[in-house]
């Protein structure tokens, strides 16, 4: 095993810390703007039945910011969950959890964006 200093000496940092931090801050800003839009847009809908919500999501003025919302928020929480995992999990479990969170993020983002585009491009239900 060697000494503790011996195990870390020369490894350096992964080199991505500053970018991770900065992207988290950038997406905090874009999340804020997109959330203000989404909350306002949902709150002012006349009702929440399927027909109303579908017509709402079909508009480019909703579908485009909605896709941007998914991209910004999902990237933001993927960065955030990685920090949480690295705080609590070590060794193998850290690796496994990081892979699971990555798969979860891509699977949910893919499903969300497909659903938005399907409605926006007017495919039959």
């Amino acid at each position: 095993m060697g000494t503790e200093i011996g195990r870390v000496r020369g490894l350096g940092s992964a080199g991505h810390g500053a970018q991770h931090w900065w992207h988290h801050k950038l997406t905090a800003g874009s999340n804020f703007l997109l959330l203000v839009w989404l909350l306002t847009s949902i709150a002012t809908l006349p009702s929440y039945d399927h027909a109303t919500v579908r017509i709402w999501l079909q508009s480019a003025w909703v579908a485009v910011p909605m896709v941007l919302f998914i991209a910004s928020v999902f990237y933001h929480f993927r960065l955030g969950l990685q920090v949480v995992i690295e705080d609590y999990a070590h060794k193998e479990s850290r690796f496994v959890l990081t892979v699971l969170v990555t798969v979860f993020t891509f699977a949910t983002a893919g499903t969300a964006i497909f659903s938005i585009l399907k409605v926006a491009f007017g495919a039959a239900a």
Partner: peptide, 22 residues
């Protein structure tokens, strides 16, 4: 943050997929 990223995400995706499904 963690709650929205897990529970919130699943609910949002379910809602969007349900709108698309009919």
């Amino acid at each position: 943050g963690t709650g929205m990223a897990t529970v919130g995400t699943l609910l949002l995706v379910w809602w969007l997929a349900a709108i698309a499904a009919g």
